[in-house]
């Protein structure tokens, strides 16, 4: 039996008592999940790792009425490798992403970003799906997912749909998910190309920090070593994680060593729309966007 920890008796906590009049669902299979979504008409608050939800509702958890807890859904915790893609279940934790060699090898930028999330505790609880659905412009995994052209599989009572990650985010903490829709998995396509990538996260301390600004970069090269595809994405400097398509186009078909770094950096700095907040001023972010773009491009040149 689990002992109750001392001294917190009066703190509102999740217990059976709190759910007498409300529901706490914990489906164990996708089938059961769909049944719940179809059968339950009231609002449901979905909990994955809980690292945002529990903090945001600290001491007022009782205000949340009906819960849908995804933590027993083992089907959402798989990482599946295919010849042409990798599928990552939405309940895969940052910790797993940051420890898996395959992820490191195939998607080094995602791997590094996962390792930079919060603290060991947050990485152990927090999930890739939670990071996506929370849709904070500062979500550390979002720029990496965008540069790898990730697709998101969304399920609901009516079936499923697959959308580009780049189409998913619509504003700060806003996305295209509709009521009754659940993010099932993330699909990242695999190509035979040679990838060169970079990840830069800038924050006010070395751990447990929300990014002031971040950058994910991925370039794929063709056989003659020209840039075949370019992806640059900036986090924390616009309402959504922002791909800088003009900058991407500017370096297409270029030889890596001949990229006009200054031009790209200027475009990035102009295209973002940062605001002043507690993590940084707009002025700072614009200047640093310029600097880290330069830095990331120089880094890939030397890879």
């Amino acid at each position: 039996m689990k002992k109750q920890s001392k001294g917190v008796k009066d703190r509102p906590r999740i217990s059976g008592k709190d759910f007498n009049q409300y529901k706490y669902f914990r489906p164990k299979s996708k089938k059961e999940l769909i049944r719940i979504i179809n059968g339950f008409q009231e609002d449901l608050t979905i909990i994955a790792g809980g690292t945002d939800l529990l903090v945001a509702n600290y001491q007022k958890l009782y205000e949340i009425k009906n819960w849908l807890d995804l933590n027993l859904l083992d089907e959402l915790k798989n990482i599946k490798m295919f010849d042409d893609k990798v599928e990552i279940g939405s309940m895969v934790t940052h910790q797993r992403l940051s420890k898996l060699d395959q992820i490191k090898e195939l998607f080094p930028v995602l791997h590094q970003a996962a390792a930079d999330v919060g603290s060991p505790q947050i990485r152990s609880r927090g999930t890739i799906g939670g990071n996506i659905v929370t849709s904070s412009p500062a979500g550390d995994l979002l720029p990496p997912l965008l540069i790898y052209d990730a697709k998101l599989k969304i399920i609901s009572g009516e079936g499923s749909r697959v959308v580009d990650a780049n189409e998913f985010f619509t504003g700060p903490k806003k996305n295209i998910l509709k009521k009754g829709e659940i993010l099932e998995k993330i699909i990242i396509p695999l190509k035979e190309d040679i990838y060169k990538g970079a990840w830069i996260k800038v924050g006010k301390r070395k751990a447990l920090i929300i990014s002031s600004i971040s950058l994910a970069l991925n370039l794929s090269m063709d056989r003659s070593n020209l840039i075949k595809k370019a992806r640059i994405c900036i986090g924390s400097a616009a309402p959504v994680p922002l791909r800088i398509k003009t900058a991407e186009q500017a370096i297409l078909k270029e030889e890596l060593t001949k990229i006009n770094i200054e031009e790209v950096a200027q475009i990035v700095s102009e295209k973002i729309s940062p605001i002043d907040d507690i993590r940084g001023t707009a002025k700072y972010r614009r200047q640093v966007a310029l600097n880290i773009t330069r830095k990331a491009l120089s880094e890939v040149m030397n890879q």
């Binding site: 903090v55 603290s119 006010k204 301390r205 070395k206 751990a207 447990l208 920090i209 929300i210 507690i278």
Partner: peptide, 26 residues
């Protein structure tokens, strides 16, 4: 890093997510 930010008497960072103190990594 430390700075309690105020605006017209209101405190803007009332918890340790935004009032930053050094972590073991720092």
């Amino acid at each position: 890093m430390e700075e309690l930010k105020t605006n017209q008497g209101y405190i803007q960072n009332t918890n340790f997510d935004e009032y930053l103190i050094p972590t073991v990594k720092d």
